[in-house]
Simulated assay, not measured.
Amino acid sequence: MNSPRPVDARISVIGAGPGGLTCARILQRHGLKVTVHDRDPGPHARNQGGTLDLHADNGQLALREAGLLDEFFSLARPEGQEMRWMDPTGRIALHEVPEADELFKPEIDRGHLRDLLLDSLLPDTVRWGRALEEVGGPADGPRELRFADGTTVETDLVIGADGAYSRVRPALSAAVPEYTGVSFLEAWFSDVENKHPDIAELVGAGSAAAADGDRGLFAQRNSGDHIRVYLIRRVPADWITGSGLTIADTDGIRAVLRHEYANWSPRLRQLLTDNDGPYVDRPLFALPVPHTWEQNPTVTLLGDAAHLMPPLGVGVNLAMLDAAELALALANAATVADAVRAYEKTMLPRSVETARALQGGAEHLLSADLPDPAHTGDNQR
């Protein structure tokens, strides 16, 4: 089958996260037709997570191509670039405070970014409640999307933007995410200025981190007077059930944390145990390095579907850069196959290089060593 011109192609994005929505927005700005399929029943079916720092050299570049950079800056929090590194006594050992006009990596809540992108799309671009089961059809197209509800869709290009456990990835690669040996336990704090003033003061306007070599924590200020704390530990992926607990057993988990962080200062231990509501278990997975595949003219990947890495500040930024480059390749290529080839020629070497640099990076989250002050402005968390 001859590869169609992008303007004539049926383009299907799987996943309505920042990467998939950025790709759809830029495609539409260039007059190309696209449909986004997402497994969630609606745009606000679940919490979208914490806050992101979008970098000037990737995430912000993608938003500029999307025509949304000014709207992003109106929502972003430049003060969120403040960063405090503490030792387990609670002493601030290194403090990065942004300049008044610093805009290299301002923070924005994931939910606000997603709404910004969703609102920029043409009506009915996103089809909700579409849980992809598999990609079928011949390798040279057309492809068939098979959904959990029994429906199918024929398409000329499948863009997998569906994250760590992508249902598109098996059409290109047999790789599956592997546990890094490090896990996050997420704790939420609400109405912090009134209910948790000491924690609000401790974290400040941006983020705060501490580690002792075996365990750590990372706290982030979110909008709406919220703070999220990620407790970072080297544990088995099933440590909760292995301890005879469930994720709903908040008191039992608190007892484990009090024991593990017993030598930390009482002030820091508030971040472990004074949270509002239950914890969220987030074991960290990553794709093998390098992760590449044989080029296919009808399927490609972006973001975590292509290069899942430890959470060191590059994930969403790279996903949005991937999305912009893929959309621009489609806007400028003679055929879909040419666009996929051009996109992957740049994306795959970049992602392999970055993944190699971050390989084992989950362990670095536990390090008690302070970052080099000369490079804290480039810190990717």
Rank of each mutant, 00 (worst) to 15 (best):
residue 351 S to R: 04
residue 199 I to S: 04
residue 257 L to S: 02
residue 140 D to S: 14
residue 316 V to F: 04
residue 319 A to C: 07
residue 168 V to T: 05
residue 355 A to Y: 00
residue 30 H to N: 10
residue 339 A to G: 05
residue 128 W to F: 08
residue 129 G to E: 07
residue 218 F to K: 01
residue 55 H to G: 08
residue 171 A to N: 04
residue 272 L to N: 01
residue 25 R to N: 11
residue 31 G to R: 05
residue 195 K to E: 13
residue 214 D to N: 11
residue 320 M to P: 04
residue 316 V to M: 05
residue 339 A to M: 05
residue 293 W to I: 03
residue 96 E to D: 11
residue 24 A to R: 06
residue 349 P to F: 01
residue 336 V to N: 13
residue 369 D to V: 15
residue 260 E to T: 10
residue 3 S to D: 13
residue 342 A to H: 12
residue 20 G to E: 05
residue 336 V to M: 06
residue 348 L to V: 12
residue 241 T to K: 14
residue 64 R to C: 11
residue 192 V to D: 06
residue 32 L to I: 06
residue 130 R to P: 15
residue 109 D to I: 03
residue 26 I to G: 01
residue 349 P to M: 02
residue 53 D to V: 10
residue 122 L to Y: 12
residue 12 S to T: 11
residue 190 S to Q: 15
residue 59 G to K: 00
residue 224 G to M: 08
residue 150 G to D: 10
residue 102 E to I: 08
residue 277 G to Y: 01
residue 331 A to F: 08
residue 2 N to A: 12
residue 375 H to D: 09
residue 258 R to Y: 12
residue 125 T to V: 12
residue 338 D to V: 02
residue 9 A to M: 02
residue 287 L to Q: 04
residue 377 G to I: 15
residue 260 E to K: 03
residue 24 A to T: 05
residue 65 E to F: 08
residue 74 S to F: 08
residue 93 A to Y: 10
residue 162 D to P: 05
residue 113 L to W: 05
residue 212 D to R: 00
residue 31 G to H: 06
residue 154 E to R: 13
residue 338 D to G: 11
residue 140 D to T: 14
residue 216 G to H: 00
residue 62 A to P: 06
residue 85 W to I: 07
residue 71 E to P: 15
residue 284 L to W: 01
residue 192 V to C: 08
residue 34 V to L: 07
residue 318 L to S: 15
residue 74 S to M: 14
residue 75 L to G: 08
residue 176 V to A: 14
residue 15 G to W: 01
residue 246 T to G: 09
residue 148 A to D: 15
residue 75 L to I: 11
residue 230 Y to F: 02
residue 120 S to N: 11
residue 329 A to G: 11
residue 197 P to G: 09
residue 20 G to H: 09
residue 241 T to N: 11
residue 369 D to H: 04
residue 207 S to C: 14
residue 36 V to L: 07
residue 98 P to Y: 00
residue 103 L to I: 13
residue 135 V to L: 09
residue 308 L to G: 01
residue 288 P to I: 00
residue 225 D to M: 03
residue 103 L to W: 02
residue 124 D to G: 10
residue 9 A to F: 04
residue 42 G to V: 07
residue 249 D to K: 02
residue 50 G to E: 09
residue 35 T to V: 12
residue 319 A to T: 02
residue 215 R to P: 07
residue 122 L to W: 11
residue 365 L to E: 01
residue 97 V to A: 09
residue 28 Q to W: 13
residue 280 V to K: 12
residue 97 V to K: 06
residue 43 P to D: 13
residue 119 D to A: 15
residue 22 T to K: 05
residue 13 V to I: 14
residue 364 H to G: 12
residue 213 G to M: 04
residue 141 G to E: 06
residue 204 G to P: 08
residue 241 T to W: 12
residue 125 T to N: 10
residue 192 V to A: 04
residue 72 F to N: 00
residue 13 V to N: 09
residue 186 E to D: 11
residue 216 G to R: 00
residue 65 E to P: 12
residue 42 G to D: 15
residue 38 D to P: 06
residue 216 G to C: 02
residue 191 D to S: 11
residue 267 R to L: 10
residue 16 A to L: 07
residue 9 A to I: 01
residue 262 A to I: 02
residue 219 A to W: 02
residue 304 D to R: 03
